[in-house]
Design a protein around this nucleic acid. Structure first.
Lengths: 186, 186
DNA sequence: GTCTATACAGTGATAGAC
DNA sequence: GTCTATCACTGTATAGAC
């Protein structure tokens, strides 16, 4: 598929797709060339340090998206906590397409990619958990609940991918959402 | 590290280690040679179809282990359900070393390895969930609970790897265990 | 900025000596 | 059964034309 490319950031969505599908090792420059529509020369022009820089750019982009679309809304004190939490599950479900789309940070945490990008991976999970904990105001053991929910979403992705069944993701995350909302109003 | 090798099965633990650490793509024959102490000639003597056959053998071995050590005990009707479930969490926690050791099937579910080994991955999760459900006799929504627990364990592995903190695994799985035991005795 | 050509290390796999 | 040598190929990365 040819793509209209004018600047570096235009390639990020395609690169994200490639790394999600093939992992860091499996994403060969041949595959990247095909999916971005850019030759090696152009790619090295945008990303002088090669594949590693491409992956870093993708992780930064995804992290930025979660920051503005998930983490910050979780801390928006003008919105009722219950609504913030429900929005988080809705947004995450859309993003991960009910488990049909994997979490790059989760996959990199399991794979050998953790050696290269461990700091970014850790930050992502730390921030998500902390933001969710902030939304669980007044709930008992808000830290444990937040931790369980973030881990549960990752597990839901793993399992729905394993069974190739998006319904698993929906069922598991709905249970999590119910439990968190429940904890808010004892 | 040199290894005493007499037959094919002697190589499986080392191979499992390699695939867990590097993934299927990242596990080059050079790395495999190093970790098994066997040259390519010997490896291809044991596994004529090469890397793919090695990974299949590893998955079969792990699957067999879970079958006898986890799935079957979950169905042992001579043991009280509560005890079966507690044993499962204890055994899984030991096996995954509190999240320091990843689940090959979970990692393969997220990665491109799913394309090759999807059937084995699916079976593993199906059987685990079904066996756990069988142990949740009398519990309300035993299917949903079992699904949540299996997914939760996978998520606990992802997150404790991401944060490089085995305590996360322990906390998350303890919560799951408590909830399942609770559901048994309403 | 994008391409093609090229370098060259590393890949999975095979053949044949021992 | 294990090794070394070698195969054809693909990997990342670079150089230079346009």
């Amino acid at each position: 598929m040819a793509r209209q490319v004018a600047e570096r950031s235009d390639t990020i969505p395609a690169l994200a797709n490639v790394f999600r599908t093939y992992g860091f090792d499996g994403a060969s420059l041949a595959v990247i060339t095909e999916h971005t529509g850019l030759g090696k020369g152009s790619l090295y022009n945008f990303f002088p340090r090669g594949k590693e820089e491409m992956a870093e750019a993708v992780l930064d982009e995804v992290d930025g998206w979660f920051r503005s679309e998930v983490f910050e809304p979780l801390r928006a004190e003008s919105v009722p906590p219950r609504q913030r939490i429900q929005s988080m599950f809705a947004t995450a479900g859309d993003y991960f397409r009910s488990g049909q789309r994997i979490c790059l940070f989760g996959a990199f945490a399991l794979g050998e990619e953790r050696n290269r990008f461990g700091a970014r991976v850790r930050t992502y999970f730390d921030e998500w958990t902390a933001a969710l904990e902030a939304a669980l105001v007044g709930a008992e053991d808000s830290i444990g609940l937040a931790e369980e929910a973030v881990a549960g979403i990752q597990g839901a992705i793993v399992m729905s991918r394993a069974l190739d069944d998006g319904a698993v993701y929906s069922r598991v995350t709905t249970r999590l959402e119910d439990r968190l909302v429940q904890a808010l109003t004892p």
